[in-house]
Design a protein around this nucleic acid. Structure first.
Lengths: 196, 196
DNA sequence: GGAATGATGTCGGTGACTGACGTCAGTCAC
DNA sequence: GTGACTGACGTCAGTCACCGACATCATTCC
């Protein structure tokens, strides 16, 4: 007989999402989440640095997918081509079966500013990591930062479209479209000093 | 005889920045900030929704500068030209005299993840507002969101360069350069579906 | 079979943040 | 000029996120 059920973090995450979705994020205490899976509040905070973090458990693998995409790009690829490869790789983390689940999770996040903050921070943090990987490949700092952060912008927009009701395209397809549109939008940029 | 010193929020902000810079953000309690200007903790939280917010007092005007830049753009301007105008307008909020002050403030923010989160949220929030303004001008949703969020990326990078030690150029000049580089970087984008 | 390990529980605390209510100077109606 | 009203603040008591220190006990390793 085992002393504890295994995989406490994932059990806590599932319980937290359910409680947040029904009762609301603020109205749910860490103690309630923990007790709903037979653990104590203290144990909750041993697995998650704070109450918000429980919704972001497993993000580590997403970062690695982005990085794998960077490394998969051919040696002569331009910065934005590397980012494109990175997005394609990351898109494998969002198969169609996950769409419904992602929708629920995102609706919880969208309704709670503290969770939005954490999400933006995660995105920016991935962007920094990808930029670092670009610099390792010889891309200069400004281009690397711009390409990586733009990639995160594309990713965020693509994801929000991917979970739209009625959307049929795959995450990879949407990301590709958004990235093309980014090129189109920025293509004719005028210097800001000309305006104002 | 006046009952209270005027402009409590600004006094609290100045005291908070000084304390955060010397003692650290976490090591400074809201009560200490309040007491250092002769107020109570309760009054601190009447002016600021949370402890982090004290460092972002006055951001409202920055948003309005961005929006003024949007409105100043000619009617036939492309989305990215409108964003360029917006950046130029916002740049007036960062005259050279503010550089030293901005450096101190930013070093506090950079060293504290909770403050970084709040900053990213503010930036994204301005981006959403600018995107909304673009849509009002007839820009379609995708282009508006891309242009506005890219503008925030440019703004963030430009600001971090503006406060670099030894940097001489104005905020407007740097922003113009970064925006040009964005166009160059995204110019040759390949579809992500080709890679990976 | 005893020691080390690792995940958990227990206890007591700090500090962010809130709601309810009291205080008091200025202001304005009458 | 008195009384109602308002606005900025103080006081008090509470909830909850989060942490450090220490105890517990099944499993594992020697």
């Amino acid at each position: 007989m085992v002393r504890w059920e295994p995989d406490a973090p994932r059990r806590l995450q599932k319980a937290a999402l359910k409680l947040f979705a029904t009762r609301g994020f603020e109205q749910t205490t860490a103690m309630e989440i923990a007790q709903s899976v037979g653990l104590t509040e203290r144990t909750f905070f041993r697995h998650f640095s704070d109450k918000r973090e429980v919704l972001f458990y497993g993000q580590h693998q997403l970062v690695e997918a982005f990085l794998a995409g960077v490394e998969a790009a051919p040696p002569d690829a331009s910065p934005i081509e590397i980012v494109a490869s990175s997005l394609t790789s990351a898109a494998t983390f969002f198969p169609d079966e996950l769409r419904a689940n992602s929708r629920v999770r995102q609706s919880v996040i969208d309704e709670n500013p503290p969770l939005r903050e954490r999400e933006l921070h995660k995105l920016a943090s991935i962007g920094t990591t990808v930029a670092e990987a670009l610099r390792t490949r010889g891309v200069d700092e400004l281009a690397a930062t711009l390409a990586a952060q733009s990639g995160m912008t594309v990713f965020g927009i693509a994801f929000s479209r991917w979970i739209r009701e009625g959307e049929q395209r795959s995450m990879a397809d949407i990301a590709a479209n958004v990235l093309r549109e980014l090129a189109a939008v920025t293509g004719n940029a005028a210097a800001p000093s000309e305006a104002g």
